[in-house]
Amino acid sequence: MSDADIFKTITELVISLDEEKAMAAVQNALDEGHDPLEILQKGVLAGLRVIGDKFGTGEYFLPELMMGADLSEACTNKIMERIPEQANASRGVVLIGAVQGDLHDIGKSLVLRQISLAGYKVHDLGINVPSMTFIDKARELNADIIGLSAFLDATRPFYSEVINYLRDMGLRSEYKVIIGGVAASAELAESIGADGWAPDAPSAVRLCDKLMGQ
């Protein structure tokens, strides 16, 4: 099989969400000496992009994004064992959570799966997350971006609470802060000093790319 055929097979197995066969195909490709970076980029990540597109067109749903993210993580971990450390980098580390008092989960879950599929290392802090937890976790995990989700008027002030903590602790320049959810808007993002706003999951990926200079 040519390189192209092997990568295409991996891509198709990723798209079909067949973790067992995708992992086996990745292992075979590695054992046959194909370039690990190419297996990752032209095989696994190419498949993940299609999964994201299928979600956008309504062909795939949140469970497929979840399964795709798990599958990609397993494949990527296997491939990374063969990649020199300097090349072994994700596109960035992103923390996401629903702010304090906010229990809305689904929109946040979609965003974090899409960002994960785009190649970022994503940490889900869950719902009803105290403001200081975002900061403690960002420091602990050396995050690049902090994503704040809120649905209600009454939880929206916690966007700025996190940003104000960062500012008052002298940490604001170390992290990009993005906001999303029904309570967010471009105007609000600007007024509270956030680095950006995303109305939906694909926009959140583009926003992360922009902030990471990619």
Partner: peptide, 13 residues
């Protein structure tokens, strides 16, 4: 549904 009163934002909890 008023997001703020006298400039004070409503903040849950």
């Amino acid at each position: 549904g008023v997001p703020s009163v006298d400039g004070i934002p409503i903040k849950v909890g």
